[in-house]
Simulated scan of single mutants.
Amino acid sequence: MSFTGKVIAITGAASGIGLALTNHLASLGASLSLADISSTPLETLTTELRAAGTKVLSTTLDVSSSPAVDAWIASTTSHFGRLDGAANLAGIGMDFTAVADVTDELWERVLAVNLSGTMFCVRAQVRVMQKGASIVNAASMAGVRGRPGLGPYVCAKHGVVGLTRTVAREAGERGVRVNAVAP
Rank of each mutant, 00 (worst) to 15 (best):
E43K: 10
T47S: 11
T47D: 06
V56M: 08
S58K: 05
T60Q: 14
L61N: 02
D62V: 01
V63H: 06
V63S: 05
S66C: 07
P67E: 15
A68M: 00
A68C: 01
A71V: 01
W72R: 02
T76C: 03
T77I: 13
H79D: 04
H79T: 14
H79L: 03
H79C: 07
F80W: 02
G81V: 03
R82I: 05
D84E: 00
A87L: 10
N88A: 05
A90H: 07
G93R: 01
M94H: 04
F96S: 06
A100N: 03
A100V: 12
A100R: 05
D101W: 05
T103I: 00
D104Q: 14
D104P: 13
L106Q: 03
E108T: 15
V110A: 10
V110C: 09
L111I: 11
S116N: 12
R123A: 13
Q125N: 08
R127N: 12
V128E: 00
K131Y: 05
G132K: 03
A133L: 12
S134D: 10
I135M: 08
V136I: 15
A138G: 09
A139C: 04
S140R: 03
S140V: 07
M141L: 15
A142S: 15
V144W: 13
G146T: 14
R147D: 05
G151W: 11
G151N: 06
G151C: 14
A156I: 07
A156F: 02
K157D: 12
H158M: 11
G159R: 14
G162H: 11
L163G: 09
R165Q: 14
E170C: 08
A171G: 03
E173T: 13
R174K: 15
R174T: 14
